[in-house]
Every structure is written in structure tokens, then in C-alpha cells.
Amino acid sequence: MVQASIDGVLLGILFALIAYGMALQWGVMSIINIAQGELVILGGYVAYYMYTAGIHPIFGVIVSPIVMYFLGLLLYKTIINKVINRDLFFSILATFGISILAQQLMNILFGSDVVVAQSNLGTTFLFDDSVSLPNAKILSAAVGTLVAIVLVIYMKKSKLGRAIRATAQNARAAKILGVDTDKVYSSIFGINAALCGIAGALISITFTLHPYVGLPYTVRSFMIVIVAGLGNLPAVALSGMGLGVFEEFADYIFGTEFRIGAVFLLLVFVLVYRRFKLSRKREYLK
């Protein structure tokens, strides 16, 4: 039980990291990025190639977001800025296309083999060996938390952070007041890709990489954002951890085969519950 809870929290922090990028895009740009998982895997490959070049993959946490940031900018300039003011459907289609393209390109460039990067960080044992925590996972959680804290402060204090929040509230008003919304959008896309890069680098040392495993990450971050609401970082972090614990427990109690199923079931419940709450609100308005 303790093992499952701790595993869940550690996993959840990783999910929250990915979900936060999604919440940013969704909240500010009204874009649901289906290619989120692929960006994560791509970030993972950056760390993996550093590892094969003989550099410790932990430095991927620094290099990968830089590479991914520029890739994010490139994606924004070439594709996303063309769909941003259109219907939500267009952006879903566009990012879905990016996702397929990214999968196939990764398959051609990196091959379809499953790869792992070795961090050789060892394991910490608690409570007389009954709970084992791989140091790589602890490190991922620590990095995830750190990044989240930095982001919260950045959003509150910096000029760009203020501009982002203003754009999220009312893009037109922000533009009139002199905020360069195009720049805001492109930096959000870049920041999101960088976040995915960090998460990917962490995944390369804790789990496995493969061109086609992006989707589960997209689904989970989608789920977390729906539960937490848009643009609320602490809620995203909490909901991420909650999902992580929920998954581990579902796995432990019902068996691994119900793990992903349980996530989807929860998603359905949350959506139904939200609708229910919303309909009650509507009644008040009447």
C-alpha cells in the first residue's frame, strides 16, 4: 500500500509536468495539443542520444528542453499560428497530424526498437526493505516539483508571465493594451515543448522509449487538465498526483490489465459529474 501510494505520487508529478503544458496551451490559446505525448517522447530521444554519446542522461533534463523549445517555436511558426484563431476542431486536426507525422519521423530516424537510457542511480529502501524507491524516480519527482515552483513564480512575477495571464483572460483587450499576443502564443508553445522535453528526459531514465508510446501521455495529461481546470498550476499538480496514485492502486488491486481502463472510467465519471454540476448552475441562472 505504502509502495503503491509513493509510486503513484512520484508518477503523478511527472504527469503533472506534461499536463501543465497542455493546460497552458488550452487555457491561453484554446488549442488541445494531441501531439503532446509525441513531444514528450521526442524529448526522451534527445536524452537517449546524449546517453549513447557517453554523456550521463541526467543532463538531458537541461539539454532536451532547450532543443525542444526551439522545435516548439518552429512548430508554432509553421503550423499552429495558422489554426490558432480558427475553430477548436482545426487545431485538433492539425496537432493530430503533427502527432502522426512525428511518430513516423521518429520511426524512420530512431528506428522502431524500444530503447532505455541507463542512469545507474541506484535505489533507496525504506521501512526495512519493504518499500523500494528507484533514485531515478525520486529525482524525476524532485525535478518536476522544482520546475513547477519556478513556473508558478515566473507566471506571477515576470513580464511574459503577466502577458500570458492577460492574454488568457482576454486576448483582444491584451492586444489593445500593447501585448504582443503572437509572441505570447509562440513562447507558450515553446515553453510547452520544453516542459515535454524535461518530462521526456526523465521518462528515458525511468521507463522505456519507443516512437509509438506517446499517446498514453497525451491521454493522461488531457485527463488531468479536465479534472483540474485550465490555468491552475497547483490544481494540475494535485490532480496529477491523484491520478498517479489512483492508477497504481487500480493496478495493485484489480490487476495491470485494468490500469488504463480505470483511467478512462475515471475520465467518464469526471465528465459526467462536471456536466451534472454545470446543469445545476444553469438552473440557478434560470
Binding site: Q3, D7, V213, P216, D251, T256
Partner: peptide
């Protein structure tokens, strides 16, 4: 007797058992 999902990336729960 655990069944692993296709999107498998974590089997720590099985291993804990």
C-alpha cells in the same frame, strides 16, 4: 497472473506483488 496493457511502461505494481 497479470495481464499487461499494450501501452505498458510500468510494471512496478506487479513486481511489488
Amino acid at each position: 497472473d497479470d495481464k499487461l496493457p499494450k501501452e505498458l511502461n510500468d510494471m512496478s505494481a506487479t513486481l511489488a506483488k
